[in-house]
């Protein structure tokens, strides 16, 4: 979705931000570095990191951005658990754009990749 929104708005981004590279996160995305570090801190459950990231995002982007980012981060703390707990595969593994992104981000290293890469019993 990040790639799709960048393409549709003709914005140059660096997907390595998704894997935690702060400079990449800042490429083409306003407050990208702070948003990425905030998202990472939420997922890490490290309260010290979260406090620092929250304060940094609020300071540079303001409370409305912080609240919306908190909503999205919390929502995806849920979405990953739906996907993995139900074992759902990627909808279209043959899609070339998706294949490129998964390769670029090296997503096959994740244990849950088996839900998409392994033929499942029916």
């Amino acid at each position: 979705m990040l790639r799709a929104s960048a393409d549709l708005t003709e914005t140059t981004i660096d997907l390595a931000g998704v894997n935690g590279n702060p400079d990449a996160a800042a490429t083409g995305v306003t407050y990208g570095r702070e948003l990425m570090l905030f998202a990472e801190a939420v997922a890490s459950r490290n309260e010290d990191r979260l406090r620092d990231a929250r304060e940094a995002l609020n300071r540079i982007a303001g409370p409305a951005v912080l609240v919306d980012a908190a909503g999205v981060a919390a929502n995806f703390q849920r979405m990953v658990r739906i996907a993995d707990a139900m074992g759902i595969p990627v909808d279209n593994m043959a899609d070339e754009s998706g294949q490129r992104i998964r390769q670029e981000l090296n997503l096959e290293r994740f244990p849950s990749a088996r839900n998409s890469l392994t033929k499942q019993p029916v």
């Binding site: 979705m1 990040l2 929104s5 960048a6 708005t9 914005t11 981004i13 997907l15 931000g17 998704v18 894997n19 935690g20 996160a25 083409g28 995305v29 306003t30 407050y31 990208g32 948003l35 990425m36 905030f38 998202a39 990472e40 939420v42 997922a43 890490s44 303001g62 409305a64 951005v65 609240v67 919306d68 980012a69 999205v72 981060a73 929502n75 995806f76 703390q77 979405m79 990953v80 658990r81 996907a83 993995d84 759902i88 595969p89 990627v90 998964r102 981000l105 997503l107 096959e108 290293r109 994740f110 244990p111 849950s112 990749a113 839900n115 998409s116």
Partner: peptide, 24 residues
């Protein structure tokens, strides 16, 4: 109704998903 645009949303979503090692 949102203070962040879609790229900002998806960067947050993507980092949370990647940190959680979610392939989907």
């Amino acid at each position: 109704g949102r203070a962040i645009n879609r790229m900002q949303m998806e960067l947050v979503a993507g980092r949370v998903s990647s940190y959680n090692e979610c392939f989907y």
